[in-house]
């Protein structure tokens, strides 16, 4: 279920080469705006979804605007800051979000009450999202984004509007986060801020780097493998306090191997005479 948000993030960070670490900011805004509205204030789901959609698009526009104003490294830091600000709001605005307790009893839609039906719905939505991303990736938008990533000035001198393309990329990343965070809480019946911390962002970066930045199928495969490892480790006979550190070590090794495997593109060898 994290695939839509990861593929959206891959579009900005992987294909667009924009130093964006604020994907979880979209996720927090999406999840909390929709489910606080629906569960805490009994607002109909359609209106809650509309509210979530409006707010994530606003955050996408804010991040896009910041990316045009700041240098790449400054934007990277600012996007992390934005994520942490939203997380702090969620943790401290207890009258609305219930802070670290999270929001329980998140309902499923009537037609999809059973786990099987709901899983099927999620799979269908994710397939539609993957097809949409592949269509974007292989079409004019994907080419424009790649061109801007490789040579921003050259691409613009051909007529590619950088602000328009990058803003669309941010909006798609935000919609990916909205899709994932509308689907996941009803699946587990709870929305908790623990799922939106910085480690989740690190996981996204790791998935994109190990799958190949910008490569849709690579990122899909990496999502399945890494999520399988992340969740599968729960079933290994380890003391509960060991699972976290072992998981971190495992991810560290995977990241190291991924970077080592791609060392020629990440650290090109200097030519000497």
């Amino acid at each position: 279920m994290i695939l839509p948000t990861v593929l959206g993030f891959n579009l900005v960070f992987g294909k667009g080469k924009i130093l964006h670490f604020g994907q979880e900011a979209f996720a927090i805004v999406a999840a909390y705006s929709v489910w606080v509205a629906v569960v805490r204030y009994q607002i109909p789901f359609g209106i809650g979804l509309g509210l979530g959609l409006g707010l994530v698009v606003l955050v996408a526009l804010l991040l896009a605007w910041l990316s045009f104003r700041l240098e790449a490294d400054g934007f990277g830091v600012m996007s992390i800051a934005l994520h942490l600000v939203f997380l702090a709001v969620v943790l401290n605005w207890q009258s609305v979000t219930r802070g670290s307790l999270g929001i329980p009893k998140i309902p499923r839609w009537e037609l999809f009450q059973s786990l099987e039906a709901y899983t099927l719905l999620c799979i269908l939505v994710v397939i539609v999202w993957v097809v949409f991303i592949l269509w974007l990736d292989r079409g004019k938008f994907g080419r424009n984004l790649s061109a801007l990533a490789e040579h921003p000035w050259h691409a613009q001198s051909l007529g590619i509007n950088r602000k328009r393309i990058h803003t669309i990329a941010f909006i798609i990343a935000a919609l990916g986060a909205l899709t994932s965070n509308v689907l996941l809480p009803p699946y587990i019946h709870i929305l908790t801020p623990n799922d939106y911390g910085f480690p989740a962002m690190i996981l996204f970066v790791m998935i994109v780097v190990s799958g190949g930045p910008g490569r849709v199928w690579g990122v899909i495969a990496a999502t399945f493998i890494l999520m399988f490892l992340k969740e599968g480790i729960r079933f290994v006979a380890l003391p509960p306090d060991m699972i976290g550190p072992v998981r971190l070590m495992l991810f560290g090794i995977i990241l190291f191997v991924a970077v080592w495997w791609r060392r020629d593109s990440i650290f090109p060898q200097e030519r000497k005479i």
């Binding site: 080419r143 424009n144 790649s146 490789e150 691409a155 051909l158 007529g159 590619i160």
Partner: peptide
């Protein structure tokens, strides 16, 4: 654009008109 094919290099320019 080195990562694109020659065809794509031309196409990306044409599509931007």
């Amino acid at each position: 654009f080195r990562e694109m094919t020659l065809e794509e290099n031309v196409l990306v320019a044409l599509e931007s008109l």
